[in-house]
Amino acid sequence: MNSRTVTLTIDGRSITAPAGATIWEAARSAGIDIPTLCHDPKLEPVAVCRVCVVDVENARTLPAACIRQVEEGMAVRTDTDRVRRARRTLVELLESGQPHADERRKPAEQDELARLGVQLQSDPSRFAATRSTPPVQPDLSSPVIAVDLNACILCDRCIRACDDVQVNDVIGRSGKGCSTRIAFDNGLPLGESSCVSCGECVAACPTGALTDKRLVDAAANGSDA
């Protein structure tokens, strides 16, 4: 086991972290919040959402904290104007493609993207006309899980939850470019796929792309599932 540590500063605080740890992990251990949408502590980081960008002294660009490893003497700022602008723009772009509020299956208070938009005071209307693909009909073929790809931000959390955590290997990516989508068994409706309805993907999803039909329907009816 590697017991070597490095010392860095995050937002002016001196922090000691294990060598090989990421900036996100070091910040989290010190109680410093760095928002993210594609990362979860249970999953390997992939840095596809870029919401966790931070300002590293003398760095040319804003690195993703979930994959950038700590270095001795590194100076990190998590809440500069440059960082806030970058995060807000990224979140606005993601929000601009989301279904209208009355079409979403997940309440705003449970939607990580919606909560982050409120926190960052985002204005997705700036990019409202940029959607490049027509909306698709929700897949309600599963008795347990509802799929709304219009709410998917391609964070890959469901893929990693299904493949790496549960090792079911049902979910993957399909298509290229703006036509890229998550798919089940290479394009089957979820209810016809080999999904075992374990719910790991639903728990991992940060938006309303994957929801538990029973909980959503119960909430709509004002009752418990």
Rank of each mutant, 00 (worst) to 15 (best):
Leu37Thr: 00
Pro99Lys: 10
Arg84Asn: 14
Leu90Gln: 10
Gln166His: 09
Ala75Lys: 15
Thr130Met: 15
Ser132Cys: 13
Val53His: 02
Ala218Asp: 09
Arg173Met: 15
Val46Arg: 05
Glu112Phe: 01
Ala218Glu: 11
Arg50Ser: 11
Val91Leu: 09
Gly97Trp: 03
Ala219Thr: 07
Ala146Gln: 01
Leu149Glu: 09
Val51Lys: 00
Asp33Ile: 03
Leu93Ala: 14
Val53Met: 11
Ala146Thr: 02
Thr16Leu: 03
Val170Leu: 07
Ala183Tyr: 10
Arg82Ala: 14
Pro45Met: 08
Leu149Lys: 09
Ala64Tyr: 00
Arg104Thr: 11
Glu200Arg: 14
Ala17His: 01
Arg77Cys: 10
Val118Phe: 04
Leu8Arg: 00
Ala218Asn: 12
Ser194Lys: 15
Gly187Ala: 11
Pro45Thr: 08
Gln121Ala: 14
Leu116Ile: 02
Ala26Gln: 01
Met1Ile: 01
Thr36Asn: 05
Asn186Pro: 00
Leu154Cys: 13
Arg157Cys: 06
Ala19Phe: 06
Ala129Asn: 15
Gly97Gln: 13
Arg104Glu: 12
Ala128Lys: 13
Glu72Asp: 15
Arg115Trp: 04
Ala64Thr: 15
Trp24Met: 09
Asp224Ala: 15
Ile182Ser: 00
Pro41Ala: 10
Ser142Gly: 10
Asp81Pro: 07
Arg82Cys: 05
Leu190Ala: 08
Gly97His: 05
Ala129Val: 11
Asp163Lys: 13
Phe184Arg: 03
Glu112Ile: 00
Gly177Pro: 09
Pro35Arg: 04
Phe184Leu: 07
Ala114Pro: 00
Gln137Val: 03
Ile34Met: 02
Ser141Leu: 05
Arg126Cys: 04
Ala86Tyr: 12
Val170Ala: 09
Gly187Cys: 08
Asn150Ile: 03
Val118Gly: 04
Arg84Trp: 11
Pro45Tyr: 07
Ala27Glu: 00
Ala30Trp: 02
Val83Asp: 09
Cys49Phe: 08
Trp24His: 05
Val48Lys: 07
Asn186His: 09
Val196Tyr: 02
Ala30Asn: 04
Val51Ile: 15
Arg13Glu: 12
Ala59Glu: 14
Ile32Pro: 04
Arg214Cys: 03
Lys213Thr: 07
Ile32Ser: 01
Ala101Lys: 09
Glu57Arg: 14
Cys38Pro: 04
Lys213Glu: 06
Thr89Arg: 12
Arg88Val: 05
Arg13Ser: 12
Ala219Glu: 14
Asp212Leu: 13
Gly177Met: 14
Pro124Gly: 09
Leu94Glu: 05
Asn186Asp: 12
Arg82Leu: 14
Ala209Pro: 10
Ala65Ser: 15
Val167His: 14
Asp40Thr: 01
Gly175Asn: 08
Arg173Gly: 06
Leu94Trp: 12
Ile15His: 02
Ala225His: 12
Asn221Ile: 00
Leu154Asn: 11
Arg28Gln: 09
Ser96Asn: 13
Gln69Tyr: 11
Arg87Glu: 10
Cys162Gly: 06
Leu90Glu: 06
Ala65Asn: 06
Leu140Lys: 05
Cys38His: 04
Thr133Leu: 08
Ala161Ile: 05
Val147Arg: 02
Asp185Lys: 07
Ala183Ile: 04
Leu94Arg: 04
Cys155Asn: 05
Asn2Gln: 11
Glu57Asp: 13
Val196Glu: 13
Ser122Lys: 01
